[in-house]
Design a protein around this nucleic acid. Structure first.
Lengths: 346, 346
DNA sequence: CTGAAAGCGCTTACAG
DNA sequence: CTGAAAGCGCTTACAG
């Protein structure tokens, strides 16, 4: 009658799961099926039976094994969340939003980093599938649409930062062009006409759209586009630093810089600082994203705000809808301009 | 003879796992057991059999189901990683380190946020257990040692930022006191004697240790400790901002501020900036952590560096060792002072 | 060397 | 209403 001691996993403190449905069932004098049903609320039972079972559960601190449940149910209550780097301040905000919403719904997130390259992204997505996630959220990946659609055949996928039309898929595009327009209109509105632009890495869709917005705003205002005022960065501080230095040394004149994102602006700040130039006195700077750090940069940065946290929350809502078989009706959060101290009328 | 079509999961694109061990086995003309063994390399077979199986695997793009494997093996190749917030720039670095090492070892990380409170931390740890993680890494949690030890009975736990002696446990403490000493010696070495300290939230062990280091350095130099020069922050920018403002308004004089961490220093920067005070001309500032952003703050921040990324990598190595039944022999990364532009000789 | 069988811990039609 | 049985997809002693 004694419980057989399992032999596997001889090392470490994992003596196999000690308390299972069966021990609860035995203790409460019912079958495992019944306990399972009570736990899942798929049955009505007498109050006394219910409390007997609950007492046993409490006593043993029982919690159903997620792997077993996942196997039986075909659902793991896990969502794979791909960002480019878990330590990027930009994505971090989004992950936080995802995490929160998922938690509310009883789901957990499996976060992985794609490192800005297709190979890693694909590896992560495969890992998600292998681990049986119920859905995938992909933050602005490099992976081609075709590949994404392929994964969407296995499991619902929501992508941010791009538009993709396919079954079991939902897109939350970012309005890069409009964001860039807002930034530029602000600058132009306070008198700037010679405005430099630091772009992201080449041929990245978001970067291209922001460049397009930059050009469109120039066009609106009747300001000729001068390619010498465009320098390319890399979405990170260092790229902003280098690009600004190049701009400064090239001799083109400008009274303001519109940076493709906040991190680029931080780099621009440092380059300007090193040259003894003051922001906004000597040059105005505007960023894009409104990272938390931008409220604390010196001076606090004027930028286009796109709430990545909200984006994350909505992405989570969208996958959950997809999983439930509903068609999401969710919009990307709007972009808006946040005027702080890095821009000044001239 | 036709495959029965499963009825569960009627919605969504998950028609149950399509290709299983059995279909590979059938295709290769062997049993599932054999395929399993070949995949796991626990058997020697003829080259032709091996390639037949591999061909079938490739053809169907088969990958074993992680949940099923986990259930059968009692291991999930997953490590639960608790930080306080997935979007904290401090923890992010550590998570990155963990992620990288774990990936190399074929493990995945399940990241969750404890939100700086015991209740959430405990919820996360329980979730880890439910999900059958093979080990847990806990970044400087608030949860009491006793509770942590309780979890360590189920699964190996490594903690950072504290010392804990218990079975199936490993600690990677941070040398807060020495870090604080280094910071203060630097300041004292360049002539400062009236040095303010912005602490973290009360009764937090790391905060206490850094305060102790601050006082010890003062003692070394024969400088009397003046409690009016200590203000408490909250580890975040806002606390640094508020504390600095209070210090400034209180009328105590100081030529330098040692901040309990970099984020606090960013807040101090802004408070000083708003008062028209220049760093380092009017006051020197030193931080603690060396976050990536500190190289780009204006001016670039002098601070104590503790490589959180390395800490994360080592934490990962430590859990893996614990899981393998080995006793880790791993030290915390050393703290060191990084002198940049926010401090100046007086 | 390889297969049939039992088992991991759960859930849920299927019968009482 | 409730239990026995089958099944989720894998792994591994146990027998050939």
């Amino acid at each position: 009658m004694s419980e057989r001691i399992p032999e596997r996993g001889k090392r470490g403190p994992r003596p196999r799961r000690a308390v299972t449905l069966r021990v609860i069932a035995r203790e409460a004098g019912v079958s495992a099926s019944t306990v399972s049903r009570i736990i899942n609320g798929t049955v009505k039972v007498s109050d006394e039976l219910k409390s007997a079972v609950e007492a046993a559960i409490t006593k043993h601190d029982f919690r159903p094994d997620a792997a077993a449940r996942g196997l039986a149910l075909g659902r793991t209550l896990t969502i794979g969340v791909l960002s480019q780097a878990i330590d990027s301040p930009f994505y971090a905000e989004g992950l936080r939003g995802v995490e929160r919403r998922l938690l509310e719904a009883g789901y957990a997130a499996l976060f992985m980093s794609g490192n800005w390259n297709e190979v890693d992204e694909e590896r992560c997505l495969r890992e998600f599938i292998d681990r049986g996630v119920d859905g995938i959220i992909m933050f602005s990946g490099r992976l081609g649409d075709a590949a994404v659609k392929e994964f969407a055949k296995r499991v619902p996928v929501v992508v941010t930062g791009r538009s993709l039309r396919a079954a079991h898929t939902y897109s939350l595009p970012i309005d890069d062009r409009r964001g860039a327009l807002l930034a530029m209109r602000h600058l132009i509105g306070i008198g700037h006409r010679r405005i430099a632009f630091i772009a992201g890495s080449e041929n990245h869709p978001d970067a291209l759209e922001r460049l397009a917005g930059y050009q469109a705003a120039l066009g609106e205002a009747g300001i000729p586009f001068d390619p010498r005022r465009v320098a390319s960065g890399d979405w990170h501080e260092e790229g902003g630093l280098l690009a600004t230095s190049r701009l400064l040394e090239s001799g083109v004149d400008f009274t303001a810089i519109f940076c493709v994102n906040d991190q680029t602006a931080y780099g621009a700040y440092l380059a300007l600082f090193r040259k003894g130039l003051n922001v906004p006195k000597d040059v105005s700077v505007v960023g894009f994203d409104d990272l938390p750090a931008s409220s604390y940069s010196l001076p606090p940065l004027t930028c286009v705000r796109q709430s990545v946290r909200t984006l994350g929350e909505r992405a989570a809502e969208a996958v959950l809808a997809l999983i439930a078989g509903r068609r999401p009706r969710i919009d990307s959060p709007p972009v808006e301009i946040v005027v702080r101290d890095s821009t000044r009328r001239i």
